[in-house]
Design a protein around this nucleic acid. Structure first.
Lengths: 206, 206
DNA sequence: GCTATTTCATATTGATCACTACGAAACACT
DNA sequence: AGTGTTTCGTAGTGATCAATATGAAATAGC
């Protein structure tokens, strides 16, 4: 239920900030310091938006996080399309993991993955946020599993290939890469880990 | 610099709680809800120890966490000894991963890994805690790498086996298993993921 | 200029944060 | 019983938490 096009109000004082820019800054703040451990004061400072304006524009802290999370994750349908490009599932997922490594080690962004690290644990109040993050992980897992299954059906992987398990492994490795990136691992190391994790597939290649 | 033996004070009101039991309860609280997101009020409730007694016994929240973390991690030298038991590195590490899966899915403990999830992100104040957790991951990585190298030197793995990369992968998979366990994955799934991750080694077996 | 509408900045809300001052209580020793 | 020592429970400390009440400021239409 999103408004189509820019809001063309007729009257009233205009917004003093760009909503998209402010959301981007909020995303970076959550990325750097997590959901519960980033205070609203941190957010207003990072976004250059006063608290009342923040609440008017985004609802509350949780809704702001969920919107920032959506912006970070992007359109998961696009991920599925991207995975369909390369000729084999292994190449597709290797490319995906290489992109992930670059993303986790960007020089202008915090290390690691916002989705992996923002709410690993937390209070009872943060349960909806953890649920949303878990749901996104399941979505990625399912997309990866479908890509693997496509190769199985096309005869490029053995019929007994455990697509679900390999997809789970891909998600697990992504979470692990995020942790290691936060610990300071360099791109070369992370690329090597990603590549090594895909050697599990050798067993099933026909 | 630890006191040897139980403290045999001569005078004064006796402690009303068992220090070890209280520490265990604190560990479980941090395990369930993380470092910064577990409040001192949560801790005093879980430990059944009033705040002044908690500070007298453990210093402050950060010191209590570090002590709880040490209790959770156990003696890393014991891990090295355990890994030396099985005849091959692969069997040793598969056994370790199987133990990890059981640990992350215990019925009387929170899901996942305390070390992986307690401080994935956080404020600047929690930096010492994150550093301690990262140091422990590096220690585990080095222990695993040494076990792999031992097999390389013994001729059980190819001379060009990238021990460091495979050890990093093991650590990454453990972090990922913790996330999936928190997301509600069952033991069977996690065991399958752990086993699949070790198929990467097939390339290097002589 | 005037009114209606919307956002702005200031200042504040009660709740909770980590942490502690203080005096009563519980022990060992004489 | 009396004294010294240590821990106990109560009740707070100032700081910070997420979220807002309030009124001035800035626009569009008239």
């Amino acid at each position: 239920m999103k408004e189509i096009g820019p809001d063309k109000r007729k009257t009233g004082r205009p917004l003093s900030f760009d909503r998209e820019v402010a959301l981007e800054k909020a995303m970076l703040a959550f990325w750097a310091s997590g959901y519960e451990t980033t205070s609203v004061a941190d957010l207003t400072a990072a976004m250059a938006v006063n608290a009342p304006s923040l609440y008017a524009a985004f609802g509350n802290k949780q809704q702001l996080f969920l919107e920032a999370m959506q912006r970070y994750a992007g359109d998961r349908h696009m991920m599925e399309v991207a995975l369909a490009g390369p000729p084999t599932a292994r190449e597709a997922i290797l490319g995906m993991l290489q992109g992930v490594v670059l993303h986790f080690t960007g020089e202008t962004t915090p290390p690691g993955c916002l989705l992996a690290s923002a709410a690993a644990t937390g209070s009872h109040d943060a349960e909806p946020v953890r649920a949303a993050l878990a749901a996104d992980r399941r979505a990625v897992r399912d997309i990866v599993a479908r890509r693997i299954t496509a190769d199985v059906l096309a005869g490029r992987l053995a019929p007994d290939t455990p697509a679900q398990v390999l997809a789970d492994l891909v998600v697990a490795v992504i979470q692990g890469l995020s942790v290691l990136a936060r610990d300071g691992a360099d791109r070369k190391s992370l690329h090597a880990i990603a590549e090594a994790s895909l050697q599990s597939w050798a067993t099933y290649e026909v």
